[in-house]
């Protein structure tokens, strides 16, 4: 049992609750109609297009979250510009941060 400022966390209790929840879900599932299988409803639907062979269907990593990248295009453009891969720039960033810390700790921080 792990106490936090506003409560506690007990994984064993959580697992117990999870098991109970799964059990309840299973019982509710038991109320369903047993004869309802097959037919159009059980097939995957892709805007009415033909479904390619399931065995060959796989979305490559490069295409996942395409929309997210597109939405944050401006941010990612800046990030790509920063990550040049040139070792001199790495050192320059280090020196830049050191300089910033100098300003903050030595000048601003003298309160």
């Amino acid at each position: 049992m792990l106490h936090t400022p506003s409560g506690y966390w007990d994984p064993l209790l959580w697992i117990l609750a999870l098991i109970v929840a799964i059990l309840i879900a299973y019982i509710i599932r038991g109320f369903g109609r047993k004869d309802y299988k097959g037919g159009e409803q059980s097939k995957p639907f892709l805007s009415g297009m033909d479904i390619p062979d399931e065995k060959e269907l796989h979305i490559r990593a490069g295409n996942i979250y395409w929309g997210f990248m597109e939405g944050l295009e401006g941010y990612y453009d800046i990030m790509k510009k920063i990550h040049t891969g040139v070792v001199n720039d790495y050192v320059a960033w280090f020196l830049g941060v050191s300089a910033l810390l100098f300003i903050v700790i030595l000048i601003v921080g003298v309160t």
Binding site: K55, E56, L57, H58, I59, R60, A61, I64, Y65
Partner: peptide
């Protein structure tokens, strides 16, 4: 992002 890795590395044919 780990869903992405799991999907692309471990799932599929």
């Amino acid at each position: 992002s780990f869903v992405k890795v799991f999907h692309s590395a471990f799932m599929g044919p």
